[in-house]
């Protein structure tokens, strides 16, 4: 009962309340309240995340499993960043309250936290993100092969867009007069047709489908049709 029925009841009740609250001006802002509570909850839940991170890595180190040195690096960098950020080490004091140390700002590279953000976290994430340039190329090479008509459409469109996105597209098609029947073949117009006609239509239908899927999934959860989320067998 406590473990199976009550969570389902809580789920249904909170879902129904939130749906109905949207239709009354008095309760309209409840959703904002819920979001702010969720953010706090996520903040508290970091205790679980941090605990898990420590547990996994400490276990690896203590049992000297292969790669335990890397776990040690993870733990050291985690601990160092946490200490530096919580103590606001090197923070620039707040001009209005220089006596309250924890009120200072630690965004500049003067503070340990700002330095770590600027020279460790930011370049690492940006570079990880930049790897996509390589992956995009290899994916295009491998996946864009004209195996069937659908594949031809996929690669053909990508091909056209790649071409018209650079000046080469304009050079190749600028000889077509702007008022002729074939003006739609000019790079500009091709791009416009692909995006404004085909892409808009495709995206619209995808969005309508996603909206229905979201609604149906929500209903399944709220009405208790899908109870996989909370019930243990």
């Amino acid at each position: 009962m406590l473990q199976r029925t009550i969570p389902l009841l809580i789920l249904s009740a909170s879902g129904l309340i939130l749906i109905l609250s949207y239709f009354s001006p008095i309760t309209e802002t409840w959703s904002e309240q819920v979001v702010s509570w969720f953010n706090i909850l996520a903040g508290v839940a970091f205790v679980l995340g941090a605990g898990n991170l420590l547990a996994v890595n400490l276990e690896k180190i203590s049992s000297k499993r292969p790669g335990w040195a890397y776990s040690a690096i993870t733990l050291v960098s985690f601990g160092a960043m946490l200490v530096v950020g919580l103590s606001k080490w090197g923070a620039v004091p707040d001009a209005k309250h220089p006596d309250v140390h924890l009120a200072g700002s630690q965004d500049s590279t003067q503070a340990g936290y700002g330095w770590a953000y600027e020279y460790v976290l930011s370049p690492l994430t940006a570079t990880m993100f930049a790897l996509l340039a390589f992956y995009v190329a290899s994916a295009a090479f491998r996946a864009f092969r004209a195996k069937n008509f659908e594949a031809i459409l996929l690669l053909g469109t990508a091909f056209i867009i790649l071409l018209v996105q650079i000046a080469a597209g304009a050079f190749l098609t600028n000889w077509i007069p702007e008022d002729s029947f074939f003006a739609f073949l000019r790079a500009e117009s091709l791009k416009a047709i692909v995006t404004e006609v085909f892409q808009t239509a495709g995206m619209r239908a995808i969005l309508i489908g996603i909206a229905l899927g979201t609604a149906a999934t929500s209903l399944r959860l709220i009405l208790g049709i899908d109870r996989s989320a909370l019930s243990k067998g």
Partner: peptide
């Protein structure tokens, strides 16, 4: 979706993804 469609073996597109669990 385009990247999953191009690089994965199977992709559940939008609504299919929500229907999948059911």
């Amino acid at each position: 979706l385009p990247f999953f469609v191009a690089a994965c073996d199977y992709t559940l597109i939008g609504e299919e993804f929500f229907a999948a669990s059911a």
